[in-house]
Design a protein around this nucleic acid. Structure first.
Lengths: 112, 112
DNA sequence: CATTTGTTCGACATTATCGTATAAAATACA
DNA sequence: TGTATTTTATACGATAATGTCGAACAAATG
């Protein structure tokens, strides 16, 4: 089936990975999403989406080494690929195109 | 289940209805989407989404009267509600928040 | 080996998308 | 003139892709 580049939540996750740069893994991504957007989602939700983004080639991942902290499993760190960056740019541009076409009247009703 | 305000395509459709103001109905919306975004979708795809947006209270619709043109069924015109405008504004704001948090390094890789 | 921190899995809800069926207005034409 | 045909649109039914959970599993460390 034909598809758009990114689903609504996929875009949020992809952006968040970009924001966290070197420190992007399941838990930190989930927390950052909540922080920045107020949206509360479970870890598994985020992981599922990370997985799908990786399959699409928008993310890569590598296992982190053991840390000197408490305990727990190793983290899997994610990085945005160039294809991922391109996809983000693309959706941004399309959306800006649409917003710029809104009649001033509508903008006014929105308190612009 | 909990849901975000708008799905990816729902947002596109909602914005397009706003752009077309008084002239927003199935066919014109479909064409405008293709025009502005390069995305090709069938009429039924758009209609399905219009229906859902109406159920969510982001759109209302009224039947148009008969026209003096060729033939064909009456059009159903759509209008964005104030809740719809609020939803658009909301998603826009969240996205801008995320974009503004991107490290300059990433922006540069995007050719910003 | 119990606790902690994280990731995988399996399942189901919501959205995206299409193809086909219908509806209704205007025209053609017998 | 009244009915078949063409035109323009919307409605319906089905399936693929995304969004979302809860619970299972994995691996560090004291």
């Amino acid at each position: 089936m034909k598809r758009a580049f990114l689903g609504e939540f996929e875009e949020v996750v992809l952006l968040t990975v970009a924001i966290l740069s070197d420190a992007a893994y399941g838990v930190s991504i989930t927390q950052e999403i909540e922080q920045k957007t107020g949206r509360v989602v479970g870890f598994s939700t985020v992981h599922t989406t990370l997985q799908r983004l990786a399959e699409k080639g928008y993310l890569t991942s590598t296992m982190g080494g053991a840390t000197a902290e408490r305990g727990g499993r190793r983290k899997r760190f994610f990085t945005v690929t160039s294809a991922g960056r391109r996809a983000l740019q693309e959706v941004k541009q399309v959306r800006e195109e649409l917003w710029s076409a809104l009649p001033p009247q509508t903008l006014q009703l929105m308190g612009g």
